[in-house]
Amino acid sequence: MHGLELIGVTKRFGTGAAAVADVSLSVERGAFLALLGPSGCGKTTLLRLVAGLERPCAGRIAIAGNVVADGARFVEPEERGLGMVFQSYALWPHMSVAENVAFGLRVRRLPAEKRRRRVADALAMVGLSDYAARKPAQLSGGQRQRVALARCLALEPPVVLLDEPLANLDAHLRETMQQEFRRLHRESGATFVAVTHDQSEAMALADTVAVMHEGRLVQVDAPRALYRSPASAMVARFVGRGALVPVEVLGPSEEGRRTIRLAGETLAVRGVAPAGAGLLCLRPEDLALVGEGEGVPAQVRESVYRGGFFEITLAIAGLPEAPVVLTAPEAAEPGRAVGLAVRDGWVLAAEGGA
């Protein structure tokens, strides 16, 4: 049984373009899904539809096998049995940590002894047992985030919705909380669905990432597959620090690879693009500097020290509008002619092509 299932879900506000357009998605029970995309792509609206905070104009939503929204039925948010962690934490400032965690349980009229046990277990799970009597104002940002998560987990929901849960934390706390979210996901056994615009966060947290663009799902895949084999130019640009370089696809080569021509050089790379105009996605780790006259001819544009390595920007011969970036232990002088060794890459059809 799926933890969450959406079939043809659409949401419009007014007469404009759909904020969510014909989205179909199945999330296995116990999975961790990240909804990833730029601002305005529809990911938060989709989360609100699942939560019951918005009504779909079309389509069906089912949670743990129970239909909560379709053309004939709409289950109110408080009746869906979901847990939700908001970006703002949404803690009651006048309540203690324990009272905040117990709030949803009181609303559900859980008996006092069960409520006390659930609160204690949830606080222990997030490492805040010693903070039960404190008020939110006495906690750090990371601790407040843990309280919000404990309040959610105390309800023992089948699905936990996370709305940009780490956006308000500094870089160090975000990394720490990523570890906590992964641990709590494993221990709770719940289905987690997180909305984020941060690709590194999505990759670190989720076992499946769904990329959205203009209200539609454009690729749903495991993080590694999404990074190594983007389905479109939009995904290739948005995920990772890659560059898209125009190439000519000559046809298939051995082992399912494609033969391409780049700046006069013939290469074999991964991909499924048909013969004709293509776009080659190059990641920094796939590239290396070699001597002039070797590899693909290029010129150094910029060399910036990033702490332990240099980030070098190159312009490939004949393609000044498509710079590529690689990392190297030593700097390279701007203007210097070099060779570019392409160890790997992924070619897809040019935009507007087949």
Rank of each mutant, 00 (worst) to 15 (best):
R109H: 13
R257V: 07
H213R: 14
R115M: 14
S26Q: 13
A90P: 06
E255P: 00
A132R: 11
D286Q: 15
E5Y: 10
L128Y: 00
G65C: 14
E78N: 15
E302L: 14
A190Y: 03
S188N: 11
P223C: 10
E180P: 10
G308I: 11
L280D: 00
S129T: 15
A69Y: 04
V239S: 03
G278F: 01
G278E: 04
V338G: 00
Y227R: 13
S140I: 10
E175L: 15
A206Y: 05
A268C: 08
P252W: 02
I7G: 05
M125V: 08
H197M: 12
L162M: 11
P284C: 08
G104N: 00
G42Q: 04
A263W: 03
A132W: 06
D344W: 07
R216F: 07
A332P: 00
L128G: 01
G242W: 04
F13M: 11
R29E: 15
G127M: 09
T266K: 12
R224V: 15
F181Q: 08
V239K: 04
L153N: 03
A354D: 15
V68W: 05
V68K: 04
V296D: 02
A69N: 06
P165D: 09
A231K: 01
V159T: 07
H213F: 10
L110Y: 06
V300G: 02
L161A: 06
P246A: 08
Q219M: 09
F310I: 06
V67R: 06
I316G: 04
T15A: 15
T176L: 14
D170M: 13
L149V: 08
S24N: 13
P334Q: 12
W346F: 05
V23D: 07
V159N: 05
V160D: 05
G42Y: 01
S303K: 02
E156M: 14
E311K: 09
A34H: 03
E79A: 15
A315G: 09
R224Y: 12
A154G: 07
A124D: 14
A277K: 11
V9L: 10
E321K: 12
I260H: 01
V126C: 00
R134N: 01
C152I: 07
M234S: 15
T327H: 14
A98Y: 00
V304C: 10
H94A: 04
L166T: 06
A263V: 05
A322L: 05
P158D: 09
A102Y: 01
A51Y: 12
G242D: 03
A150L: 00
V304G: 06
L128W: 02
R258C: 04
P111A: 07
E321Q: 14
E285A: 11
E255T: 06
R115A: 15
E5W: 09
E54V: 03
V209H: 07
L340K: 02
F181N: 08
A167G: 15
Q138I: 02
G353W: 11
L162Q: 02
A167C: 12
M203P: 06
S200F: 08
M234P: 05
E254V: 10
L280K: 01
A328I: 03
L205T: 01
R151V: 00
K43H: 09
L326W: 00
S140D: 12
M212G: 00
P274E: 05
A124S: 13
Q219P: 01
R60N: 09
S26H: 13
A225M: 13
H94T: 04
R12A: 12
M95Q: 13
Y305E: 07
P157V: 06
L166G: 03
R270W: 06
F310Y: 15
H172V: 14
F32V: 07
